[in-house]
Amino acid sequence: MSAIQFVLLAIFVVSALVGYKIINRVPSLLHTPLMSGMNAFSGVTILGCLAATAATGTLGEPGVNWIARIFGYIAIILAMLNVVGGFAVTDRMLRMFHSESADRTEKTGGQN
């Protein structure tokens, strides 16, 4: 195992600990959007999919591993669905939360 791989493992552990710390502060009120938001982030694997798909060869040049590349397309579509669907749905949910005071100003604003 090279030094950089050791560093990568360290990044994994540290970010897990930091994430744990931060997420512990999220109130249970928001646990559903938190979960779908985290779900969107898990689509970060798109980065790996893009790099791995591109590495199957260069378009227009010989030696492209087409079977691998088509699997790569599937992976990109799935990961993108995960990312975009996840963030969009989280946004939809979060916008539904209104506080009482905000509601009141809205209402009085409408009446005036």
Partner: peptide, 21 residues
């Protein structure tokens, strides 16, 4: 997957999501 392709960003976000779940 990030460890496999040596991508630190993938590793970091993966770790955060793993911990939150």
């Amino acid at each position: 997957a990030g460890l496999a392709i040596s991508d630190p960003l993938l590793v970091a976000v993966g770790g955060i999501v793993g911990a939150s779940g």
